[in-house]
Design a protein around this nucleic acid. Sequence first.
DNA 1: CAACCGCGTCAACATGGCTGACCTAAAAGC
DNA 2: GCTTTTAGGTCAGCCATGTTGACGCGGTTG
Lengths: 169, 169
Amino acid sequence: MADLKAGVNQLFLREEELRTGMELLFYAYREFTAEPDEILAAIDFGRAHHRVIYFVGRYPKITVSELLAILKITKQSLSRVLGELVRQGFIDQQTGARDRRQRLLELTEKGVELERQLSETQRQRIARAYKMAGAEAVEGFRKVMMGMLDEEDRAKFTPPTPARPLTKR
Amino acid sequence: MADLKAGVNQLFLREEELRTGMELLFYAYREFTAEPDEILAAIDFGRAHHRVIYFVGRYPKITVSELLAILKITKQSLSRVLGELVRQGFIDQQTGARDRRQRLLELTEKGVELERQLSETQRQRIARAYKMAGAEAVEGFRKVMMGMLDEEDRAKFTPPTPARPLTKR
DNA sequence: CAACCGCGTCAACATGGCTGACCTAAAAGC
DNA sequence: GCTTTTAGGTCAGCCATGTTGACGCGGTTG
């Protein structure tokens, strides 16, 4: 009987534990995006613009199709926001040298500035959390988060060159 | 000179580290929602329905305003999805005994079943990640995630009774 | 009994996904 | 060298889910 009760209790703890994980993800993601969203709203942009700005900043000279592969949205959806960003001078396109069909994307100075501003609050939030939790906890955090990803995305973090796990161009 | 180089290097590592955190959150959240989204689409529901189902399941007899406080959306947005869920028999409303203006929300059997089905893949994903990472890493994960939250949300996880950090009713 | 509160509803709008069709120009294959 | 494939763009329309603002009804409370 003691065994059975222990088993049930184990199950309950596990259930609680998993729910906690789910909710942490929900709340953390929401708060993580809340501050940039305000800045974006003020200049008539949305979260989609932020994502594009972020990844173009992260991978300078990224091609449109690489960007699409990261964001996993359709090119029609991307082109709406990307078009605005280019027209308003946040992103520069240059024709690929080796393959002239490609448009290599890069942040302009204005784009870099916006990126910095948008991500600043997020960086602070993470930095604060890392600091509060300590180095060991950060390692655990990373391990667990990696475990949540599918193989494809996980590969982006364990690469030859972490900053450019993209295809050749 | 060695000091300066070390300092710059430190800064670079920190930057990399913070970006990794941001991206982990982005990819993890996306994959976390992808599987339920498919199930939902098949029955003409969306992510918003899932959230409502989830939290009503989590806090049986929750009131509408408590739910609104958790989701942080407008009542007009909520009422759209909540209405559908009630009309299609996934959620039951009963008038509050003490305050008859309140609608206490609860999953029906049908609702419980859907909740289970939707969250199953997510639970598995988390369980897998926890298992792969180990107990210590899980503790670190939790610490870091908590550190990302604002005080208000953090309180939901360090309560008298974790399962009902809601107001009296 | 007046004021406030819990909840619902109507209308209109924005954002950011989606599908499908169709185009150009460049590269690659045979 | 011609054909096919690829990279990228574009038009048009649909849907889900968020927003504001206005208003109503019934129940609670000072």
